[in-house]
Structures are given as structure tokens and as C-alpha cells.
């Protein structure tokens, strides 16, 4: 099948391929330290996939590889393949900017720009060449509504995003991510810097976003993974130990190490 045909199919959303990411025998090294070992994993469309595991297990590394943000770290080497939408993300033809437009990211610490709320959300559309005020206004409102924060900020769009609370900032960051209409949203422990109430709001938001987006979320909060995700992957020292339906993983883990981890024996 040629790329063109597969693209067309996707646009018609007549998708018979259930996996948006296909990770095959993937290894990654930071310099000479291997961080990921032979990862095989398929990430399903319009599902929430959680990746759990103790600190340093490679879950963030894996997440950042999916939109190649990992390349910001010097001396990273990889082997194996990762396919997004059936195309190798590491191929020469793949423009990394295009990949990151389709695979958006929300970071651990809320990281709004030191600009107004409006300019934060309009940033993505603007870098992709949208200049018309009317179009931008529409995108900003739609994105902020999508991130369930429109009502809280609609009267102060021109104020600096730094004046918002941590939870609000994170939702503005999610809105900023939605503004370029990605297919996938990667979330790197998006609630670890937030209080319980803000966390709850973000979790509800993530569940709502599932209808339109594929979400991959890294968390070291197991309850969070159990609450919101459809599929859960458990990683340990760079290996994917177990990857299955969330319910199955938490109620009936196959691997002894998974069981030890989810019952709180380590990590």
C-alpha cells in the first residue's frame, strides 16, 4: 500500500488499522548506557494508554521517543523501528516538525510561555502560518473549551498565563496542544506537580479527550493509571514487562514483577 492511499484512508477516517503507533524491537542508548531494551508495543487509536513503572524505568524516555523529543538530548542512539501511521518516524523522509504537529505533548511541569493566555494558545497555529485574527480567535476559544478552562479564563485572555494556578496553567498547556489539532497527545506525568483537585479536573479532561485523540500518559501514580486508562504498560529497568488491558493488569497480572509493583512491594 502506498503512503498516499493510506493517508487518504486516514482522512476519510475509514480506519481499519487499530494501531497508531507500532513499536518493534526498539532499543535506545544514552551514550553507552542502554535505557530501553527490545520494546514491542502497539498503541491503539482513540484509547488511553498508560505507562507505569518506578523512577528510571525508561517510561519517559519511551514517551519522548514517540515524537522524537528525545533527540533534544545529545548522544542518543536507537535501533529497531517505531511506526506512526505506518510510516517509520526515524526515516529521512519524515520531517520531525510534521511528526510533532501530529503527535503533541503535555509536559510534567506546566510550562506556559511568558505570554498572555491568548498568545499561548495561538502560538501553535501562528507558527504554522495562521495569521487571521478571526481564525485565531476561533481556534483559541475552541481549544480552551476543549481543555475545559474557557469559562475560567474567557474574561482575561490577555493576561499573562503565569498569573494562573498550576492546574489552570496545565489546562492552558493542554489547550495549547489541542490548538494544532494533533492526532496523538503524549502526557508526561501531567499531574505530578498539581494538587488533588486540579489532578481530578485534568483526569476528567483526559477521559473526555479520548473521543477525539489517542492519549499516551506516563504516570507513576498507579491509581491514576487504573482510573483513566484503557491499556496499561508496566516497565522496569528499560524493559516492557507487561502490556495489556488496564483491568487485567491490575486484577490479574501475569508477571510476578508486575504483581509486586502494583501491590506496593517496591517502587
Amino acid at each position: 500500500m502506498t503512503d498516499m492511499i493510506s493517508n487518504q484512508q486516514n482522512e476519510n477516517s475509514a480506519i481499519d488499522d487499530q494501531y497508531i503507533f507500532d513499536i518493534h524491537d526498539f532499543n535506545l542508548w544514552y551514550g553507552s548506557d542502554q535505557a530501553l531494551y527490545g520494546i514491542n508495543m502497539g498503541i491503539e487509536k482513540n484509547k488511553i494508554t498508560a505507562v507505569i513503572g518506578p523512577s528510571g524505568c525508561g517510561k519517559s524516555t519511551l514517551l519522548k521517543t514517540l515524537n522524537r523529543m528525545i533527540e533534544m538530548v545529545p548522544n542518543v542512539n536507537t535501533s529497531g523501528s517505531i511506526k506512526y501511521d505506518n510510516a517509520d518516524i526515524f526515516s529521512k523522509k519524515q520531517m520531525v516538525e510534521d511528526l510533532r504537529t501530529q503527535v503533541g505533548m503535555v509536559f510534567q511541569k506546566p510550562n506556559p510561555f511568558p505570554k498572555s493566555i491568548y498568545d499561548n494558545v495561538a502560538y501553535g497555529p501562528r507558527i504554522h502560518g495562521i495569521k487571521k485574527k478571526k481564525v485565531l480567535d476561533e481556534i483559541v476559544e475552541k481549544s480552551l473549551r476543549g481543555a475545559a478552562i474557557w469559562d475560567e479564563v474567557k474574561d482575561r485572555l490577555n493576561q499573562n498565563a503565569y498569573g494562573l494556578s498550576g492546574g489552570q496553567q496545565q489546562r492552558v498547556c493542554i489547550a495549547r496542544c489541542l490548538a494544532i489539532e494533533p492526532n496523538v497527545i503524549l502526557m508526561d506525568e501531567p499531574t505530578s506537580a498539581l494538587d488533588p483537585i486540579s489532578t481530578l479536573k485534568i483526569e476528567e479532561l483526559i477521559k473526555e479527550l479520548k473521543d477525539k485523540y489517542t492519549i499516551v500518559i506516563v504516570t507513576h501514580n498507579m491509581q491514576q493509571a487504573a482510573r483513566i486508562s484503557d491499556k496499561t504498560a508496566f516497565m522496569l529497568t528499560g524493559e516492557l514487562v507487561e502490556f495489556t488491558d488496564t483491568d487485567t493488569l491490575f486484577s490479574n497480572p501475569k508477571d510476578k514483577r508486575t504483581e509486586d509493583y502494583i501491590t506496593g512491594r517496591f517502587g
Binding site: 533534544m72 516538525e97 511528526l99 504537529t101 503533541g104 509536559f107 510550562n111 511568558p114 507558527i127 494544532i180
Partner: peptide, 24 residues
């Protein structure tokens, strides 16, 4: 973090420099 936010949205390095790094 704010450079990553920009790069993570598909901005090129130059766009990130011009819109984020230089103003700051």
C-alpha cells in the same frame, strides 16, 4: 521547559529562537 514546549508543537529551531528564546 518553554523551549521544549515550542519544539514539541512542531516549531523549528529558528521559530523557537525568534518567538521564545530571544524575547526572553
Amino acid at each position: 521547559e518553554i523551549k521544549e514546549a515550542s519544539i514539541g508543537m512542531g516549531a523549528t529551531k529558528w521559530q523557537t529562537i525568534w518567538r521564545i528564546v530571544l524575547p526572553a
